Simulated assay, not measured.
Amino acid sequence: MDFQYIISDPEILGGKPIIKGTRISVQLILEWIASGASIKDIVEEFPHLPYDGVQEAVLYASRWMDNEIVIETKVRA
C-alpha cells in the first residue's frame, strides 16, 4: 500500500516516518493517542496537520505491526 501522507527521509528526524511537510513523527502521533488524545484533538492542537494525515499515521503503524514476529520466551527463576 502506498501512503500519501507518510514519508521517511534520512535528513528529517533521522529517517523516522513522519507526516509529509512536518516534523511530526508517526511515533509521536501514537504517543498522543496512547495518552488519550483523539485524531480530532491532535488536529485541533496542530491545525497544520491534515486530519487524513494523522489518520494515515495510525494506519501506517498498524501495517508495520502486521509484519511483527512475536517470540515467547520463559525465564527460569
Rank of each mutant, 00 (worst) to 15 (best):
E31D: 07
M1A: 07
P50A: 06
W32H: 11
R76V: 10
I42T: 04
P47E: 08
I18Y: 03
W64R: 15
P47M: 13
M1R: 14
V43D: 01
L49P: 01
G14K: 04
L13C: 11
M1I: 09
V75K: 14
D41H: 05
R23A: 08
I6K: 06
K40L: 12
L30T: 11
V54E: 00
I18K: 02
D41A: 04
Q55D: 13
I19S: 00
Q4C: 05
I7Q: 02
V54I: 02
I24C: 01
E56G: 01
S62N: 14
A34V: 08
S35I: 07
F3V: 06
K20A: 06
I69S: 09
E44A: 10
I39R: 00
N67R: 12
I71E: 08
I7W: 07
M1H: 13
L49I: 02
L28S: 05
V58T: 05
H48P: 05
R76I: 14
V26Q: 03
E45R: 09
Q4S: 08
E11Y: 15
V58L: 02
V58S: 03
K40P: 03
A61G: 11
Y60N: 00
M65V: 15
E11P: 11
F3Y: 12
I19L: 01
E45I: 09
A61H: 13
V54M: 01
A34T: 08
K74H: 14
G14V: 06
L30Y: 12
I18T: 02
